[in-house]
Design a protein around this nucleic acid. Structure first.
Lengths: 193, 193
DNA sequence: CATAAATTACCTACTAGATGATAGTTTTAA
DNA sequence: TTAAAACTATCATCTAGTAGGTAATTTATG
């Protein structure tokens, strides 16, 4: 199997681990739970990911890769900035539908328990989101779709915080419609008055 | 010891548990960690909190009680709404200074691993915050300090989401100043233009 | 093309340590 | 003296992880 490529089993393991991690946190499940979910033995999971830290790192890198692809897909569309922003919000909304939150949001919550080697790629995820959002906000401001004062990076970070926090609030209140209303409010807040 | 009153040892246990829970999540520490932190044996912790679920419930109820007291203190001051809001943001900022996030935000992140009996009081925390913030926002709108369209409950929920998410983003990027900037932006966004 | 060797991907069995919890005892405080 | 609060000792279960084995697949060789 070529270096760097993942096998189907590895993706199954990562899918199961991601669901568990996004729903209950990375320290609230074990290899036994993954074994039960996908039907291979614990030792087989160790064969693919020798330590739980290996698994967690692989999970983060895959998530970042998938998120980057999603950003690229939005970028490459001819959608206007407001629609791009809404599609971006949809990425978060989708995790809510799975009874979960953003994997990186979860890892950031538990950061004191995160292996040191994951902190840099995790921080980079948030930098990437901020920069991407900043670009969308600037493009919207230029074409008149968005109106906001000040630094677009600051505003981008606020948008990102709102989305991450919106998942938490909607999760606590067990009502995804709250997240939808929040996204509408977010867009209304920077749209034309 | 009178029913419902906590002993000093119980508060020490809860203080240690709260710090650990807010830093790394409730499932990433054990009674052994609390024992190491406060210098009594695991069995003594069990004496006060027979199960870890008992501990988690006591933790949540105490946190809610302390937060309610903080809201009451802000309410009873003669501060104008904008200052009340800033003081409210300070409550979150303080947890960041401790290398932690809001206990309820953390519990909401990990909600799939939360004992069922905690879900109602957790949801209630978020309802209480939303209602309180809604009241402050309405008062500000009435006295001209705040300008925002639409439902104050919706805006309150957005503010709450921003604060919770701001902790996450600042945590991931290991920079509390980002949270400060976000709060300033939040206030600027509803203040007079 | 057939066979042997190497590799992969799983398995069983097992381990050491940690964890949440309990029972009985001792010490401390009231 | 009694009750509370700590303790020691112990337990069952779980967890992350390892070693060695096996079957299937792939690669190398004659």
């Amino acid at each position: 199997m070529m270096r760097g490529m993942r096998t189907n089993t590895q993706d199954e393991i990562l899918n199961a681990a991601q669901a568990l991690a996004q729903q209950r946190g990375f320290n609230a499940f074990s290899y036994a739970d993954i074994s039960a979910a996908i039907g291979i033995r614990k030792a087989s999971i160790h064969y693919h990911f020798p330590s739980k830290e290996d698994l967690e790192l692989a999970l983060l890198l895959r998530y970042v890769e998938q998120f980057d692809e999603a950003l690229l897909a939005i970028d490459q569309s001819a959608d206007p900035p407001a629609l791009k922003l809404r599609r971006y919000g949809e990425l978060y909304r989708r995790t809510l539908s799975l009874g979960a939150i953003c994997l990186c949001g979860m890892m950031a919550s538990d950061i004191a328990a995160l292996p040191a080697m994951l902190r840099a790629p995790l921080a980079e995820f948030f930098v990437t989101q901020t920069n991407w959002l900043g670009g969308v906000l600037e493009a919207g401001r230029r074409n008149g779709e968005f109106v906001f004062a000040g630094d677009s990076v600051l505003r981008a970070r606020s948008v990102l915080a709102s989305l991450q926090g919106g998942l938490i609030v909607a999760r606590a209140l067990q009502d995804a419609a709250l997240f939808d209303a929040l996204v509408d409010d977010l867009l209304a807040g920077i749209g034309h008055r």
